[in-house]
Design a protein around this nucleic acid. Structure first.
Lengths: 156, 156
DNA sequence: ATGGAAGGTGAAGTTGACTTCAAGTCAAGG
DNA sequence: CCTTGACTTGAAGTCAACTTCACCTTCCAT
């Protein structure tokens, strides 16, 4: 039986990780994962790629770009297998990132509540349309909206 | 003085709204805003466009796509000037959307806390890499991650 | 009347994260 | 040996939301 091989084909990794084969090749090009090759040129991934991919998916879920993921992965030791402490260190910084995102959304929600009350939606004063604008009301406001939710108010 | 005109040029709207002129033209093409034209073909926006743009920015900040914004704006009455109640109705639905996003992020954060504890990052069982996976642990989990944070786990 | 800032257009470019395609190659069960 | 499914590559396509470009026209203060 070939049920438990030492290395995995793209298809196997795709099945186990949930990433499409094309994504795995893409990640390899970006250097996020690496694979050896058979004599015929086909990829053979070490099983450790699954943990790496789990990290990548989690990071993506939190909103990191692949560039940021790459930077994080670059801090892993090359020589030895990453330990639990290594992974923990990497994911610890996500905590504050998530806190920031949550705080941003909560600020937005609070602003929304006041907007529903006043119906203003004023460009200059409404917290909803100016979530990060220091002119919005004096308070620091939603200083840390997740990047996906942030919109520059102006930049001229 | 021409300080307070009845209509506004793209440049003026851009300055007051914070949207780039190119974005305003784009929005006009999509039908999100409309403008009359001078005999020479230049746009002249009614002042009411500023409120519309405030709505658009707020909606975008919350994560709506322009398609969704268009759908929301389409429910405004064409005949009369939208009232405060109209705008309020539109923004009320955002509240639950924000709540969902916040809940999703909080679930992610809780999962992260447990992951930091266990260092697992297991593809099959870790809440971080499987935030919406019903197999993640039995609980409903982070059922409603914001679209920007959602990633299909697999679809084959 | 005029000069230069501001505005007009359609087409193409940008970014991020992939996917899809075309055309050919490898691996392994029968 | 042969078939067939899985794999290979580079290039191009996709999506959202705009921006940039090239080139031409309009507006209005002097």
């Amino acid at each position: 039986m070939a049920g438990t091989a030492e290395t995995l084909t793209v298809g196997q990794v795709a099945d186990r990780s949930g990433f499409a084969p094309s994504a795995l090749r893409y990640y390899e090009r970006l250097g996020l994962v690496s694979a050896s090759r058979t004599t015929g040129g086909q990829r053979r991934f070490p099983r450790s790629v699954l943990r790496r991919l789990a990290f990548i998916r989690a990071a993506r879920n939190i909103g990191l770009t692949l560039d940021e993921v790459a930077a994080a992965l670059a801090t892993l030791p090359e020589a030895r297998t990453p330990t639990r402490a290594d992974w923990t260190r990497l994911s610890r910084s996500w905590r504050s990132r998530l806190d920031e995102q949550i705080a941003g959304l909560e600020a937005l929600r609070d602003g929304l509540d006041s907007c529903i009350g006043c119906g203003c939606l004023s460009l200059r004063t409404c917290a909803m349309s100016n979530p990060a604008d220091r002119a919005a009301g004096g308070g620091p406001g939603a200083a840390f909206l997740p990047r996906t939710l942030r919109r520059p108010t102006a930049d001229t």
